[in-house]
Amino acid sequence: MDKDLLPKRSFAQKYHVRGIGGTILFFFLLWGSAVMTGVNWGDFFTNLDQFFDLLSRMAHPAWDYTNIVIQPIIETIQMALIGTTIGTLIAIPFSVLAARNLVKNPIVRGIIRFILNLVRTLPDLLLAALFVAVVGIGSTAGVWTLAVFSFGMISKLFYETIETIDDGPLEALRAAGANNVQVVVFAVIPQVLNSFVSYFLYTFEINVRASTVLGYLGAGGIGVYLQRSLSSFRYDQTAVIVIAILLVVIVIDAVSNKLRERLQ
């Protein structure tokens, strides 16, 4: 076989430059991260007994604390419900304005999407810290945090749903002389209502999870008690709170999943 007839491989292909370079870069990043964060596995394993001591204290929950926990955990669910609702109500007009098939003006759409992207980058606890500074300690701060947090998430889910709807009814209404508001009310809403409710429930699930820690920074709910028990080293109480959170999240997830299956 003549060697010249074989297809030529470039230098990069012959010596697997991308594969080897990528691997080296990856390990370099790992090493760099380990140095940056001061990883010390020796330290970790020598102090592991302290960690297990903490775990064993958490393994004996203070059950008499349960009565105190019930009220704040209910408050947490209420915060999540009101917060998600406010977020959804603000999200609806924004998602209509961000949908490609409803708003033909790319500048308006671009600005709205830019705002939504900005809101979505902010982590929930960061919002909580800001709102505690603005409205003061209490569940109001939690409600506003969850409202803004779910607003960013839900408007993206909503406008993506709106973009997948069937254009037929819209065109029919426009041809019959309907204005934009009528098009939205009679052609868009009937098509998206089920997915909207389903996404609302999904966001509610996420908000229940998020709201359990918001109180750590003073934004109401069970997190306040979490912070209290941790700072007073009562890990047996922490265990009760964690179990309560686990139960609530599992129940809410199950109920919401059942409802979402029915909507489909």
Partner: peptide, 23 residues
């Protein structure tokens, strides 16, 4: 479901405050 913050605080108890606990 175990809150990440609680986990972080537990690891801070073990390895001291700092980014290693975060990792």
């Amino acid at each position: 479901t175990f809150p990440e913050l609680v986990l972080a605080i537990m690891f801070i108890k073990a390895v001291g405050p700092g980014s290693f606990a975060g990792v």
